[in-house]
Design a protein around this nucleic acid. Structure first.
Length: 422
DNA sequence: TGTCATGATTGCGC
DNA sequence: GCGCAATCATGACA
């Protein structure tokens, strides 16, 4: 007997035979072998269709009778077997999809950005790392970091909330479908494999929604990053004090403006910037100084004066110890820097006798200022041999281009424009 | 709004 | 890895 016949036979039994006999396969076989007329398919369909004409109570009663029928398990298994053979076996193989690479990429990115996964570190760590690279004053950066972290946390919260909603909806829908299938499995054969397949289909549909969510989140994070952490966008001028400190070091080490690692760290600490920012600053300064010495001449002079004043102050304080009547004639803008560079050694040599700059100091400073202006500036001092640390010939860092003339300034300021890109 | 100043980045050579 | 040179991108200011 083929499957279809067996099915039909079963239905025949359900519809037409007394309950006592219908559930018994032996009885069915007996009846067939006895040559009882089989009902044709039309009759069976008619019986099934007749159910729709029945009242609800009658239909429920019949449904109950069908569910409780002794033949049902046997029929059910046969139908499942047929379905397995005809449909599921063909499709099943194709449904073993590998994990979606795009989702994997998005997952990795969200993990790296600290949006998904454990929160510890995460975005704040990324923010800190990016900000460290970006530099800026600690206060500014910390404000912006907290802002960045807040926004990232917001994105994270939205993402997780949406993900939760998605998972809940997916779970609810899956449960709903499974319940439906279970309900239907009473009246039609539904194998566990088919239910599994249905669940997989639902999950696949929902995962496309999930992917959209992940994509949107990634985009939001990217926008946030570009807005907050792009170093170029974040460029801030160093504060005046930091620039002063850097310039003083630069001009006081003009013969060799290459701070050691320790010096860079010290400067970074003083200026409240990173070591790499110090390196950048010196790199820029060296090249811009070389390109346009004329323009920087005045600045150099200024710092020479400042350092002279500072040295004079030190001297004055030293003298004060010996002569209390000596007025503190340091200029209002005198610098309280812990000078350890060669400037001060150099300035000590200005009068040839170390720190013995006698008071009153201001006239001397004025004289120095005038001298640096009249003689062509700062480099003149080095040319005189008094300002030995700035002797440019002592170090060849400028020799590769046009070292500042010892006797004459290299043209008017602006004659060699730096940064021609602007 | 245009121009200049300036911090940061990039590519290259050593 | 460091420094140089060119360049970019942004801030400051007239």
């Amino acid at each position: 007997m083929d499957d279809q016949t067996r099915m039909m036979t079963g239905l025949t039994g359900l519809g037409g035979l007394p309950q006592a006999d219908v559930g018994d396969p032996d009885s069915v076989r007996k009846q067939q072998s006895l040559g009882q007329p089989q009902q044709d398919i039309g009759d069976i369909l008619q019986q099934i269709m007749a159910i729709t004409d029945e009242s609800l109570d009658e239909a429920q009663a019949r449904k109950h009778a069908l569910n409780c029928h002794r033949m049902k398990p046997a029929l059910f298994s046969v139908l499942c077997e047929i379905k397995e053979k005809t449909v599921l076996s063909i499709r099943g193989v194709q449904e073993e999809d590998p994990p979606d690479p795009q989702i994997m990429r998005l997952d990795n990115m969200l993990l790296a950005e600290g949006v998904s996964g454990p929160e510890k570190g995460g975005g704040s760590a990324a923010a800190a790392a990016a900000a460290a690279a970006a530099g800026g004053s600690p206060t500014d950066s910390s404000i912006e970091h907290s802002d960045y972290r807040a926004k990232l946390a917001q994105i994270r919260q939205i993402y997780h909330s949406e993900l939760e909603k998605y998972e809940q909806a997916c779970s609810e829908f899956t449960n709903h479908v499974m319940n439906l299938l279970r309900e239907q499995s009473r009246t039609r054969p539904i194998s566990p494999k088919e239910i599994e397949r249905m669940v997989a289909i639902i999950h696949r549909k929902f995962s496309s929604i999930q992917m959209q969510l992940k994509q949107s989140t990634c985009e939001a994070v990217m926008i946030l990053r570009s807005r907050f952490l792009d170093a170029r966008r974040k460029r801030r001028n160093f504060n005046k004090q930091a620039t002063e400190v850097l310039n003083e070091y630069f001009y006081s080490h003009l013969s060799n403006p290459y701070p050691s690692e320790e010096a860079k760290e010290e400067l970074a600490k003083k200026c409240g910037i990173t070591v790499s920012q110090v390196s950048n600053w010196f790199g820029n300064k060296r090249i811009r100084y070389k390109k346009n010495i004329g323009k920087f001449q005045e600045e150099a002079n200024l710092y020479a004066v400042k350092t002279a004043v500072d040295a004079a102050n030190v001297s004055a304080q030293a003298s004060q110890a010996n002569s209390p009547a000596t007025p503190n004639s340091g200029s209002p803008g005198s610098y309280s820097l812990s000078h350890t560079g060669d400037t001060y050694l150099g300035l000590r040599s200005l009068n040839g006798e170390g720190l013995n700059i006698a008071p009153p100091l201001q006239p001397q400073v004025d004289t120095l200022h005038r001298a640096t202006h009249l003689t062509g500036g700062y480099e003149e001092l080095s040319g005189s041999g008094l300002y030995t640390p700035h002797r440019l010939d002592a170090n060849s860092w400028q020799d590769t281009t046009n070292p500042p003339s010892v006797t004459s300034p290299p043209g008017p300021p602006g004659s060699v424009h730096s940064d021609t890109s602007n």
